[in-house]
Design a protein around this nucleic acid. Structure first.
Length: 202
DNA sequence: CGTAAGATGAAG
DNA sequence: TTCATCTTACGG
């Protein structure tokens, strides 16, 4: 496993969103290490009505304008956190939202963090995986490129898989943009896309 | 399936 | 002040 460098993130956001599929999130928690493979991402661009950065820099979204490889963790719906990686150049407010991962290591810890009946629901949503990995507002704005960081993005041997490109979900503005990407790997921990899209179009 | 949980920023 | 939101869990 090798840590991803700044050059990986300092590129057009859509490219980074695709490249992140199949890479790994490594979270060092007090109780042990948790590793997950990224299987679904979404790109959020500066010129994008659905992006927090669309109306310019605010106190909340300021990490998005920071340099590539910074984390952006936002609190939403009054109770959940979502985890993004800042991309592109400094002062461009763009990021990739991690929407789903597949548990690789530390599954017992994940189960402890997530008291849900079905294993399938452990990490198949942006706020679910932050709960599973123990990500909270303390992780907002930290540098993910440091070996010592409690949260890192790593790569392992290359796998072959298909990248599916679709519309984004869960938002009303800019939802027609094909900025959502997921990996067709094992399929076990994938979100049921047809069901979610039906819900969104309603 | 419908809805509550309730922080945040933008608009009024 | 009011409204919509990059969501999830739970009850019918």
């Amino acid at each position: 496993m090798k840590i991803l460098q700044k050059s990986f993130f300092r590129e057009p956001t859509i490219e980074v969103a695709k490249k992140l599929l199949g890479k790994f999130i490594v979270s060092k928690t007090p109780k042990g290490v948790i590793v997950g493979k990224i299987v679904e991402t979404e790109a959020y661009l500066q010129n994008d009505p659905a992006s927090h950065s669309f109306c310019g820099k605010t106190n909340r979204n300021s990490p998005m304008f920071d340099s590539a490889g910074t984390s952006y963790v936002y609190f939403t719906y009054g109770m959940y956190y979502c985890f993004n990686v800042v991309t592109n150049k400094k002062n461009i407010g763009e990021a990739v939202l991690i929407r789903a991962i597949e548990p690789i290591r530390g599954i017992e810890l994940i189960k402890k963090n997530r008291k849900v009946p079905k294993n399938k629901d452990l990490t198949n949503g942006p706020a679910k995986l932050t709960l599973a990995l123990g990500i909270n507002k303390n992780f907002n704005g930290i540098n993910l490129l440091d070996e010592k960081s409690p949260l890192k993005l790593m790569k392992d041997k290359v796998e072959n898989f298909e990248i599916i490109e679709t519309k984004r979900i869960g938002i009303s503005k800019g939802c027609k943009m094909p900025y959502r990407f997921y990996a067709k790997i094992s399929g076990k921990h994938q979100r049921d896309c047809t069901a979610v899209e039906a819900h969104n179009s309603h």
